[in-house]
């Protein structure tokens, strides 16, 4: 893990900045404390392929939900029955959430023609906040980004912290889960999802 710069240096610089810049900087300072282990290597540390997503035994039904995406289109989880679905709970200010997002996109693209869907549920942020962040991502997500503005769905799933991800089988049952960031762009992850499709 690399260190964060000193608060002394930051505060001096931040005080001279226009307010939005200052806020962004200060937010990042605190977020750095939250997300100091968000590097790719840290995400992958000590996670064997089997451990990347832990098994949910017995599988439990995923709570159904209906949420809007960034275009206002409503997505209902039950409409994805028959597909494997990766449901990811995140927020733009959460460093490990940000770190894993490109790997989710790569996974999604690699399985584009398969019965597989990705739904990422932003927690408690406005449409503008999320939309602005999407433009900064490379690659930018092509899967639906949904707004769980009151975190009602997160609470229904029993999410304790973000990021948390669930893998749902084609019958609508949660079969795997991961608390904390992961690297989703792995052959093991693709194999796991392809096994669910058969």
């Amino acid at each position: 893990m690399e260190p964060c710069t000193t608060p002394v240096l930051l505060d001096r610089n931040a005080a001279a900045m226009p307010n939005p810049e200052r806020r962004r900087l200060l937010t990042s300072l605190a977020a750095c404390g939250l997300g100091a282990l968000a590097s790719r290597s840290a995400l992958a540390a000590d996670t064997t392929p089997d451990q990347a997503l832990s098994i949910v035994q017995p599988p439990r039904p995923a709570p159904n939900f209906t949420l809007p995406d960034l275009d206002g289109k409503l997505h209902r989880l039950s409409d994805y029955r028959g597909k494997a679905v990766l449901v990811n709970f995140w927020a733009t200010w959460c460093p490990p959430c940000r770190a894993e997002m490109p790997s989710i996109e790569k996974l999604y693209l690699s399985l584009r023609n398969k019965p597989f869907a990705v739904l990422v549920l932003d927690q408690g942020e406005s449409l503008n906040q999320v939309f602005a962040y999407m433009g900064q991502l490379n690659p930018s997500p092509t899967f639906p980004v949904l707004l769980d503005s009151k975190s009602a769905v997160a609470h229904a799933f029993g999410v304790m912290g973000i990021p948390t991800s669930y893998l749902i089988d084609p019958h609508g049952k949660i079969v795997r889960q991961a608390v904390g960031g992961r690297d989703f762009d792995t052959a093991a992850m693709r194999r796991l999802i392809e096994q669910l499709m058969t």
Binding site: T48, V179, G181
Partner: peptide, 9 residues
């Protein structure tokens, strides 16, 4: 679970 991690204040 094994491999899980979390952050927060």
């Amino acid at each position: 679970q094994p491999g899980d991690w979390a952050q927060g204040f």
